[in-house]
Design a protein around this nucleic acid. Sequence first.
DNA 1: ACCTGAACACCGTTCAAGT
DNA 2: ACCTGAACACCGTTCAAGT
Lengths: 184, 184
Amino acid sequence: MPAPERTSLEAIVSAARALLEAEGLAGVTMQAVADRVGVRAPSLYKRVRNRDELIGLVVESTMRDLGDAVDAAADGEPRGALARAARAVRAFAHERPAGFRLVFAPGHDVVLDPDVLGRSSVTVLRLAAELAGDAHALDAARTITAWVNGFVGMELAGAFRLGGDVDEAFEYGLDRVVAAIVDG
Amino acid sequence: MPAPERTSLEAIVSAARALLEAEGLAGVTMQAVADRVGVRAPSLYKRVRNRDELIGLVVESTMRDLGDAVDAAADGEPRGALARAARAVRAFAHERPAGFRLVFAPGHDVVLDPDVLGRSSVTVLRLAAELAGDAHALDAARTITAWVNGFVGMELAGAFRLGGDVDEAFEYGLDRVVAAIVDG
DNA sequence: ACCTGAACACCGTTCAAGT
DNA sequence: ACCTGAACACCGTTCAAGT
C-alpha cells in the first residue's frame, strides 16, 4: 500500500528540455524522457496527460526563463535597456535554439499560459511606453518584439546566406528599429 | 512488364500541401498522402526518398509561391512597393498559415534550395537598395524581412493577446520600419 | 498511490512478389 | 518500371495487476 515516488513533474520537464536541445523535438519521446528520469514510459502519465501537454510545459518553462533573462538585462535608461533586452533575447536563442524555436513557432497550437505570456511582455511594454508614449506603447512594443523574434528566427533557420556580418546586421536593425519607435 | 504510372511527384507534393493546411504537420502522413493520390503508402517511396524529403519539397514549393506573390505585389515606386510586398507576405500567411509556419520555423533543419531562397530575396534586396543605398541594402533588407516575418509569425502563434487592433499595429510597424531604413 | 509489463493502434520504411 | 501486401521497428497510450 505504500507508494514511493520515483520521479517528479519537475524532473520530467527538465529531462524533456534537455532532450529537446540534444535531439530535437522528434527526440522528445515518452520513452526517452522516461529513461532519463529512471522510470517506465507509462508512469509518465501519472504526472502528465499526454505528450502534447508535456511539450506545452516545456514551452511554458522556456518562456519563463526567457522572461527572466529579458528582465535581468533591461535596466538603466530606457533606450539602452531596450537594446540590452533585445540582445538578451538573441543570446538566449543561441544558447537554447530548439527551445526558442518551439516557443515562437509552435507546430500545432500550444496552450500558452496567459500569465506567463503577460509577465514577459510587461517589461518591454514599460520601456516602449517610456520611449514612444502611452498612446503608442503597445504598437511600439509589438514592433520591436516582432523585429527581434523575426531576426533571430531567420538566423536560426539559416535564412541569412547572402553573406555579410550577421552581428552587424543585428546592431544595424536594432539601432534603426529602436530609433523608429522613439520619435513617435 | 508494362508499368502504368498511377501518380506523380507533383500530385504527391500537392496532396501533402493540402493535408498540411487541413490537418497540420502531424496530419501529413505517408498513408494520408497515399490515400489522396490513390496509391498505397509504399509506392510513394518511388518518387520520394522519405517523409523528410517530402516535407522539404512542400517547403520549397511554398517558398516559390510566396516569392511569386511578393514579386507580383512589389511594383511601382520603391517605398510603396515595399509596403505592398510586406502586406502580400501577411496575406499569404493568413491564407496558408501552416505552410508559412513550416517555411519560417522548421522543426528540424530543412534542406533549403539556395536558388529558391535567393530568388525570393532579390526583389526585396533591390527595393532595399533603392531606399537605403547600396552600402546598407543587405542590412536594410534583413531588417524589413525580419520585422515582417516576426510580426506575422507572432500573429499566427497567437502572441498578440493584449488587445488592440492588430491590423493597425501592422500598419504602424510597417510605416516605422520602412521609414527607419530610408533615411539611412 | 504510484509503478510495471503487456497489449493496441498507428506510423515510417523495406522488400519480395506481382503485373 | 511501377505497384502491392506483408512484415519490422518504433511510438503514444491504456489498463489490469502488482507493491
